[in-house]
Computed example of a mutant assay.
Amino acid sequence: MGISTRNFNENNMNRLINKIETPEKILNAPAYDHCVKADALRIKNYLWESIDEYLKALAYDDSNYEAYKGMGLSYKQIGYIESAIESFEKAKKLRPFDKAIRYELGYCYYQASKLSKSQKELHKAIKIDPNYIEAQFQLAVVHELSNEIDMSMKIYQKIIEERPSYIAAYNNLGSLYIRLGMLTAAVEIFKELIRINPDFVRAYLGIAVAYDKMNAKSEAIRFYRKYMEIKPNSVNIPYVLERIGELKSEKKPVQNSHLKLVVQNV
């Protein structure tokens, strides 16, 4: 009995259609399952356990860029920056136009003090998505750390203009103004920040330090006190109290003793 050519062709066509329509996650089901489990573990901060699952996923499918990306995020959270970079670089080779991978690489290179590489990756992320605000902000930080002050300032100002609610840009720009001795500008930018978010405590400290450097004692004391009211348990409180005492004293205040406040955590 002869084989029907028509049936043979139809069967081959159906098999081909099924193969095309089968999702990649089904074709690589074990890798997909391990990756899903790894993501869940990472979200719950079981970071080493998540890395183990990502590695299992990659053992089944070493072209799984999501596994490399997730593993990079886990390593970054643990603080293993070089391992994070290695994972993100492998993810980048598989997905060179993924803006998030480029951003994470830029951030990790920044953490590793490899600033030129950081800039390169952040520029690439912004080229992929010109509205990628997090990448723009991180690029400004890297420029500032590289002592490229004009470029850093321009980016902070651009972010504030285009995204007025992006608080971190105000804070960094105000702190940069203080460093540069642009004290009036610092006061203005921190006051603008307070108008946007009255609970952003570091803005009050920034204003106090700027007024302090301007020798505007009463204004400096007022904002130091406001800072203490909002965050009475801050590690800065002993320094603030000491500085208020110096400013209220008839003796000449210790020159620049308030500068240590700038580098303290709020």
Rank of each mutant, 00 (worst) to 15 (best):
K44H: 04
A59F: 11
K93D: 12
N14G: 00
P130V: 01
Q136R: 11
I20F: 05
K120E: 14
S234N: 04
S87C: 15
A168L: 08
V36F: 03
A216E: 14
E24C: 00
D39N: 13
I51H: 09
V209M: 08
A216T: 04
I189P: 09
I20S: 03
L259N: 15
F137W: 11
L241E: 14
R6M: 03
I126Q: 07
S63A: 11
S152D: 01
A40D: 04
A168H: 03
I244H: 06
L241D: 04
Y110H: 13
L41G: 03
Q264Y: 00
N197R: 11
R195K: 13
G206H: 11
I244P: 10
A112S: 15
Y80T: 02
V187P: 06
S257D: 14
N147M: 04
V141R: 06
Q77P: 00
K69T: 09
K124Q: 11
K191N: 14
I43W: 06
L193W: 07
Y46Q: 15
L139N: 10
K99P: 03
T22D: 04
P130Y: 01
A185K: 15
G245V: 00
S63M: 01
Y32C: 00
D61M: 03
P164W: 01
Y60E: 08
K19L: 05
I207F: 03
V263N: 11
K90G: 06
K69I: 02
R202H: 13
I159R: 09
E242R: 12
Q77L: 09
L205F: 11
P164N: 05
S146F: 01
R225K: 11
P130L: 00
P96R: 02
D212A: 11
S165W: 04
I167V: 13
I17P: 02
M151D: 09
Y68I: 02
I101P: 11
L241A: 01
E89P: 02
Q119L: 10
I81W: 13
E161V: 01
K226E: 05
R163C: 08
Y80F: 10
D199E: 14
I167T: 08
G245K: 06
S113W: 08
A31E: 05
S152I: 02
E53H: 12
E24R: 06
Q111I: 06
I133V: 14
E21R: 12
L259Q: 11
N265L: 14
T5F: 12
I178T: 14
G174C: 08
M153F: 03
S165F: 10
R243I: 03
E162V: 02
K117Q: 15
K117I: 01
Y65G: 07
Q138F: 02
A135D: 10
A186L: 08
Y211L: 05
